[in-house]
């Protein structure tokens, strides 16, 4: 008999094995929900599937009685806007700083200590500061995401720039490149796919800061809604929202992978 470490599942078996935990979780939930409902038909903690449907229908497909808006979609749009703006700004800052510190030792000596210091500040600790400086509007939420993920991105891109083989830099110099050309033509194009990799890793953190900011000060947004309806123990809204956020996170990750494969085929086939 083969050792366990040498047994590999077929495609079908791998799929079945992968699906089992999902089915178990759903069955466990159904069982729990049924049991609680049997005891108290008004139980709010584990709503039935039907209650989920009606909650989703109420928020996503029926205009709000008060404003005439579709709350679910409005929350989604405003959360995604904040998230994408924060991530895009962080990516732009990190790309510039990561590249120049990675490429130019003098800039690294100049900027690395302060970047390292700033990256040690827990972003949530400066949230009040952001609210004071940038107000309670959109800007402070976007800023929290930027403050939260930029240091990691800069340090990652600095490292990735350093990892580009020295041979290529020497070669470019023997081909007549100056420092700016070298950054533009050799380093930047090779760092871009690595930036997308780093963004994938930082998206989870970005969501964390987005929801934290929305929980504290917002009037709409996915995180805001969850923390709002928590007061009424509305598990029928909270759980679908959590699943929706999970799906959005998955979708963004998928988009990043596929954009990267499309734009940088040389990067993916060389690995």
């Amino acid at each position: 008999m083969k050792r366990w470490i040498n047994k590999t599942p077929s495609k079908t078996l791998a799929f079945v094995l992968g699906v089992i935990p999902f089915i178990l979780v759903m069955a466990l939930y159904q069982w729990g929900s049924d049991a609680r409902k049997a005891e108290n038909s008004n139980d709010k903690l584990l709503p039935s599937v039907g209650q989920f449907y009606s909650a989703i229908d109420r928020l996503a497909f029926t205009p709000s009685k008060r404003t005439g808006e579709y709350i679910f979609w409005k929350d989604t749009v405003s959360s995604l806007k904040r998230l994408l703006m924060g991530v895009a700004c962080a990516a732009a800052i990190a790309l510039v700083l990561g590249l120049i510190t990675g490429a130019i030792p003098l800039m690294a000596a100049n900027l690395s200590p302060i970047i390292t210091t700033l990256s040690l500040i827990p972003p949530m600790a400066v949230l009040p500061l952001l609210f004071i400086v940038f107000g309670l509007g959109e800007l402070s939420k976007v800023m929290l995401i930027i403050v939260g993920i930029t240091p990691f991105l800069i340090r990652d891109l600095y490292q990735k720039t350093k990892e580009i083989p020295q041979e290529q830099l020497v070669k470019a110099q023997t081909l007549g490149a100056n420092s700016v050309q070298l950054i533009n033509r050799v380093l930047l194009p090779q760092i871009l796919p690595r930036l997308l990799d780093a963004l994938r890793l930082s998206l989870g953190t970005a969501w964390l800061f987005l929801i934290a900011a929305e929980a504290i000060a917002a009037t709409e947004g996915l995180g805001y809604r969850i923390f709002l309806v928590r007061r009424y123990l509305s598990m029928d809204i909270i759980l679908p929202y959590v699943m929706w956020i999970t799906f959005l996170a998955f979708l963004l990750d998928w988009l990043l992978v596929h954009a990267s494969k499309k734009a940088f085929p040389w990067y993916h086939s060389a690995k």
Partner: peptide
């Protein structure tokens, strides 16, 4: 090893020195 630029095609790899020569900033 690592003497060529992985993100450029064969032609671009050779043409890049011409580009360095003709375009001092963007290359």
């Amino acid at each position: 090893k690592y003497s060529v630029f992985p993100h450029l095609s064969v032609r671009e790899n050779v043409a890049i020195s011409k580009e360095f020569e003709a375009s001092p900033v963007l290359g």
